[in-house]
Write a protein that binds this DNA or RNA. Sequence first.
DNA 1: TTCTCCTATGTTAATTTCAAACATTTTATT
DNA 2: AATAAAATGTTTGAAATTAACATAGGAGAA
Lengths: 254, 254
Amino acid sequence: MTPSQRRKDITSHVHATGKVDIEQLSEMFHVSPMTVRRDLVLLEQDGKLIRTHGGAVSPRSLTLETPFISKETKHVTEKRAISKKAVQMIPEGASILLDSGTTTLELARHLVNRKDLTVITNDINLASEMVNSALHVIVTGGDLQNNVGALLGAQTQEFLRSIHVDRFFLGAHAIDLHAGVTSPTLEKSMVKKLMMEAAEETWLLADSSKIHHKAFSKVCALQDLDGFITDDRVSKEEVRLIEQQVKTFFVEGG
Amino acid sequence: MTPSQRRKDITSHVHATGKVDIEQLSEMFHVSPMTVRRDLVLLEQDGKLIRTHGGAVSPRSLTLETPFISKETKHVTEKRAISKKAVQMIPEGASILLDSGTTTLELARHLVNRKDLTVITNDINLASEMVNSALHVIVTGGDLQNNVGALLGAQTQEFLRSIHVDRFFLGAHAIDLHAGVTSPTLEKSMVKKLMMEAAEETWLLADSSKIHHKAFSKVCALQDLDGFITDDRVSKEEVRLIEQQVKTFFVEGG
DNA sequence: TTCTCCTATGTTAATTTCAAACATTTTATT
DNA sequence: AATAAAATGTTTGAAATTAACATAGGAGAA
């Protein structure tokens, strides 16, 4: 039996049983535990399995048990309706700035059929969505936030200070009718503020579930915005409170 | 902090970084390694993570790796072998610069299990691959090249002039044993040159099919490189010609 | 309050596993 | 046949794991 054949057998055995231990493999293939260990190191590098203490497990066996319902799947119809409305309001030839986030990601998806637009973003997920389009896309650069895709940091800020665009679409995780728009870190709100300064107009995009939440660091008051697009799942009283602060569109969303 | 809250925090931290070690968690939550270990046992039973030797990994981090889908590009096995070799040569704690391209994309995929590395790239596809890792990733910023994913332009160049890294991994489309490394546009070769200047060492990564091709704009001569990793599908005469110009590793790629 | 029980955590020691270095065998190449 | 390269085994010290026991801190009852 060749080493590569043995590794293939180990791989299929791991996938079949979900779990193996080194002692067992050592006996099964009549090789020393050290050799098995070396095989497992190679197979782990290829992503075929995950090494554990004393053995290895199949990555697939556990992924089936933990279905990750990410927040991306929440309020999709609302986000879609909001971003659709936003796209309609972008004139040909405009330069726009897109915040990081799932709502703006939807917006980017709706943008890919447009042309003659310059789109600037600090989110690599948005950039990836637009890479196959005819859009002129500019990425700010900066430190990549793990598991998120946003770019932040001094480099991002420096770039934002050097540009000017027609419109900024702001995403938000927390909106309070009195405290305004807030974000979880100083860093994020700093970048959002700079984006507002770089833009002629700022429009807030957020589904109504974000309302009545407060986070740590203030971005701006609702009065500072030029517009707000959200869905219609808000009470009359809320509508009144919002509309007296900012020009708002309540789109139908689900 | 209650035990259950700590476990939730551990869970989200594992999912955020993809990988944690016990010592690190012990310090982070100010509890003994034994307590962390007990937490990890519970969380593993819930399928929230997979315990490894010395820590735990997120089950999700491995589903994204899926080394089974990338059949679209040519010479996958060669590229994989080349990037594997390259990864082995990166010391812990290093800062590296990754060129845009499919070979460096493979390299990025092999890097996601590493930590304590700073990785700088001008390709959003590479950045996307590394977003769920524990790596410190920095994106250069610049104009997005449609259908490619590379970032180029004045902004990219300005950033590259402001940094210094330990090692640069250069990808290439055309290598000639006399003309050296060339690229199709002035813009691209300019960025590559700046990357070389920003790095202590430059290593060329390219499968052997790239040899004996010339493109428009010169990047560098083979002698300017500190190393070259390619596959072994080259003739003896070629080996001789290459080796007298640059330190080279010919990895097995079939 | 004071006592008791129970959970959570820390500590220690013994066991197991891991990883590095070196030695040996096998395989491939010239 | 000679040599190099790859694969495997062995040894050894370091590291992680586990189990067992000890301690601290609440929650609830008398």
